[in-house]
C-alpha cells in the first residue's frame, strides 16, 4: 500500500469469491494497517462508500527454508528422503506451489523406485525455471513467477505445454492413455497441416485478392504457398480457412498452433539454437564432492558460494549470483582436468 501512496490512483479489482456467496475479494488493498484504518480506507473508494468488511486484511510472517539447501529434485541435500515443496521453499502463489508439489511427489516416488529423478530444464518448462532459480539463486522475498524469468519464452508457451511435457508424463505413468492419445492426435494434425501449407499453393483469384486488400495487404501477383501467405503479418489462419480450407476442421487449439508455428518459425528456431548452445554448459557435470577451495584462481567469495549451492553442472554454476564469467572459465578448466584424471565425463 505504501508503494502506491504516491501515485494519483491505484486500481482495485473486486473479485467474486463464489456463485453462492456475497463475499468479494478486494484485490489491491493488501495491508497490515489497523482495523479502524482499513474501514476508513475501504470507504474512501468510489463504489465502496458503504462497504461492510466481512474479513479484515492481514499480514502473515512465517518460517521458510532457504531453498539453496535443495537438489533440483526438491530433495534436501542434508536429509535423504526428505522433500520440500511450495511456500516453505520461499515461493508465493498457488501455481508455484502446485508445480513444486507435483515435482516433489514424483521425485519422492522415483527415488523409492530406484529411478532417476524427473528434472525439467529451463528450455523445457517454467517449472524448470522455477526450481533452478530457487536452488541456484535462493530468495530473500516471496518468489513469484514472471515470464521475464524465462530465457526461452517463445519455446515455453502456454499453448504448447502438452507438446513439451506429455511424453515425459506418459512415460512415467502420470498421464492417462486417453490424455496422451488426445495429445498425439493434436501432434499429428499439426504436422499434417504444416505439411499441407508448405505444399499447397494458392492462386491470385479475384476473391483472394479482394480479401487480401480488405486486410490491408498487397494482392498476389502469382501463386504462392499457403505457408508463405500465412507469414504475412496481416494474414491469419481464418483467412486460409476461407479460401483454402483444410480437408477437415482442426479446431481452435490446433489452428492457433499452426499459425504460431508458421509466423514465428524463425524466432522459435533461434531460441532452440540458443538453448542448444547453453546445453553444452548444462551437460558439463561437476563431480560431486569437488573441493572448490583447492581450485587456484577462485576468490574466497566464489568458493563459499559454490560450496553452498553445490552446482551440479557448469551451467548452473554460471547462474549463481556473484559468480563471474571469469570464475566460470576457471571452474570449467578445473572440472575438465578432474574428469580427464578420473577417465570419464
Amino acid at each position: 500500500m505504501v508503494r502506491f501512496a504516491d501515485k494519483e490512483r491505484h486500481q482495485i479489482f473486486l473479485e467474486p469469491e463464489g456463485l453462492e456467496t456475497t463475499e468479494y475479494y478486494a484485490n489491491g488493498i493488501s495491508t497490515s494497517l489497523p482495523y479502524d484504518v482499513q474501514v476508513g480506507l475501504v470507504r474512501s473508494i468510489e463504489g465502496l462508500e458503504n462497504a461492510e468488511i466481512m474479513r479484515p486484511a492481514y499480514a502473515i510472517e512465517y518460517d521458510f527454508v532457504f531453498p539453496s539447501q535443495l537438489k533440483h529434485s526438491l530433495e534436501t541435500k542434508g536429509v535423504e528422503g526428505l522433500f520440500l515443496g511450495g511456500q516453505i521453499n520461499g515461493t508465493s502463489g498457488y501455481e508455484e506451489a502446485a508445480a513444486q508439489g507435483l515435482m516433489a511427489g514424483v521425485n519422492a516416488a522415483m527415488k523409492l523406485k530406484g529411478c532417476p529423478p524427473l528434472l525439467l530444464k529451463r528450455d523445457e518448462a517454467y517449472i524448470g525455471v522455477l526450481i533452478d532459480d530457487l536452488v541456484t539463486k535462493g530468495t530473500s522475498e516471496p518468489y513469484r513467477m514472471f515470464t521475464s524469468r524465462a530465457e526461452y519464452r517463445l519455446l515455453l508457451r502456454h499453448d504448447n505445454a502438452d507438446f513439451r511435457l506429455s511424453e515425459k508424463g506418459y512415460a512415467l505413468g502420470l498421464v492417462s492413455g486417453e490424455a496422451y492419445e488426445r495429445y498425439s492426435g493434436k501432434k499429428r494434425a499439426l504436422a499434417a497441416e504444416i505439411g499441407r501449407l508448405r505444399g499447397e499453393r494458392i492462386k491470385p483469384s479475384l476473391a483472394v485478392n479482394e480479401g487480401l486488400s480488405a486486410l490491408g495487404t498487397s494482392a498476389l501477383a502469382g501463386d504462392v504457398t499457403l505457408e508463405k501467405l500465412l507469414k504475412r503479418p496481416e494474414v491469419h489462419y481464418s483467412f486460409l480457412k476461407r479460401y483454402a480450407a483444410p480437408p477437415s476442421e482442426l479446431g481452435p487449439e490446433v489452428e492457433s498452433l499452426v499459425e504460431i508455428h508458421v509466423k514465428y518459425e524463425g524466432y522459435i528456431r533461434k531460441q532452440v539454437e540458443m538453448a542448444e548452445r547453453a546445453d553444452a554448459f548444462e551437460s558439463k557435470r561437476i563431480p560431486s564432492g569437488l573441493d572448490f577451495k583447492a581450485i587456484p584462481g577462485l576468490s574466497r567469495e566464489v568458493v563459499e558460494k559454490l560450496a553452498r549451492v553445490q552446482p551440479e553442472n557448469i551451467g548452473q554454476a554460471s547462474r549463481i549470483p556473484g559468480i563471474t564469467p571469469a570464475a566460470v572459465a576457471v571452474l570449467l578448466v578445473a572440472v575438465e582436468r578432474q574428469w580427464r584424471r578420473s577417465g570419464n565425463s
Partner: peptide
C-alpha cells in the same frame, strides 16, 4: 535436522460484502 531457515511475510486484502457495494459506480 540441520536446515537453515529464514522468515518471510505476505499479506492478503479485506473481503467485502457485495450487498454493501455500489457496483453502478
Amino acid at each position: 535436522l540441520g536446515l537453515e531457515m529464514g522468515r518471510l511475510k505476505t499479506g492478503t486484502p479485506p473481503r467485502l460484502d457485495s450487498r454493501s457495494i455500489d457496483f453502478s459506480r
